[in-house]
């Protein structure tokens, strides 16, 4: 099963690149998605808000700036959220794209709904079930090989697999099995974003494992191309991928802030699980308000005056 990302088809395969990526529109989108996630948090408990906020720009960039689609709207590339507890980021992007419905998210973690707290294979737009850390990258290797086999049969270009891992996942042995193996198998159609927010639920990763840093060097030592960047700067994310070595897998080590966008959540471990109370919620909405809110749809963050490319898919 592959995702259909569009209800509106476009004229040709598109490879979005840094030059075409509308960063200010993306910033508006991400603010709107943060507001939407906070809105959900008022109805649903334990939704992993801060881990979703740390990877939101990365996930938005992958869908809007990197993944290609066929003329019929079918996604040609694959996205796997290996840090499944960031599901709200992916759900919000998929809702914004029209792949998931508003009702899908409204009933998330509700007995009448079909979405849980982690991505489930079979849900709209979800390519693999994740939730237990360290599973996404090995599965991604298999998808990369499958896409290479398909492209060999069709004499075409192998589709790319984009994966988002957390820095906590770098403590899992299975992650390093796959990191070691990918260049050995000459897997080239793989881009891994490490959401380097610096925390696991128990505290700072740098305290747990001082020797994990610098992360990019570990990937390079295993034969990967690795690029450091700011995980909330979407231009820097797309530029990193634009400079990908076509022969090697790429690790984009993206420095992020857990709880990015809401001042009191930033780098506070308790927001790994907690939902804001009503006054905290209001404060968060004020911090995430649009400078010119009249020009925007309050839910999608799209500007009615200037339709952006991202709105097509």
């Amino acid at each position: 099963m592959q995702t259909t990302l569009a209800t509106t088809s476009v004229s040709d395969e598109i490879r979005f690149g840094a030059a075409a990526f509308d960063v200010s529109a993306a910033q508006r989108r991400c603010r709107a998605m943060r507001r939407r996630i906070l809105e959900l948090s008022q109805r649903l408990p334990a939704l992993h808000i801060a881990p979703a906020f740390s990877c939101l720009e990365i996930v938005d960039t992958i869908y809007h700036g990197l993944m290609r689609q066929a003329p019929d709207g079918r996604a040609l590339d694959t996205f796997i959220l290996s840090k499944g507890h960031g599901a709200l980021a992916q759900f919000a992007v998929l809702e914004q794209l029209g792949v998931m419905s508003r009702a899908d998210l409204d009933t998330c973690c509700h007995p009448d709904g079909h979405l849980g707290g982690h991505p489930d294979y079979g849900s709209p737009g979800i390519e693999a079930s994740t939730g237990s850390l360290g599973h996404g990258l090995p599965m991604a290797l298999g998808i990369c090989l499958a896409e290479s086999e398909r492209s060999r049969a069709a004499s075409g270009q192998a589709a790319t697999v984009y994966v988002v891992t957390s820095d906590g996942e770098l403590m899992e042995g299975s992650t390093w099995e796959a990191v070691l193996l990918a260049p050995t198998l000459k897997i080239h159609n793989l881009v891994v974003f490490v959401d380097l927010n610096g925390y696991i639920s128990g505290g700072k990763t740098s305290v747990y494992h001082p020797n994990l840093y610098p992360v990019a060097d570990k990937f390079r030592a295993f034969g990967w191309q690795a690029i450091d960047c700011d995980g909330h700067d979407q231009t820097s994310l797309t530029k990193a991928v634009d400079s990908k070595d076509p022969l090697r897998p790429l690790a984009v080590v993206a420095k992020t802030v857990k709880g990015q966008g809401v001042s009191y959540m930033q780098d506070k471990p308790m927001w790994h699980y907690r939902s804001p109370n009503p006054s905290e919620y209001q404060q968060a909405l004020e911090e995430l308000a649009e400078p010119d809110s009249n020009a925007l749809d309050p839910n999608t963050g799209r500007s009615s005056a200037s339709p952006e490319r991202g709105s097509q898919i």
Partner: peptide, 28 residues
């Protein structure tokens, strides 16, 4: 040769990678 894969001593990846192949319609 492209359909024979030796992952080495990495059993978690043996199964995870196989699941990935199956997610794209292959039968590992």
């Amino acid at each position: 040769p492209s359909r024979f894969i030796d992952v080495g001593i990495a059993e978690q990846t043996l199964i995870g990678l196989s699941a990935g192949l199956a997610l794209r319609g292959f039968k590992p």
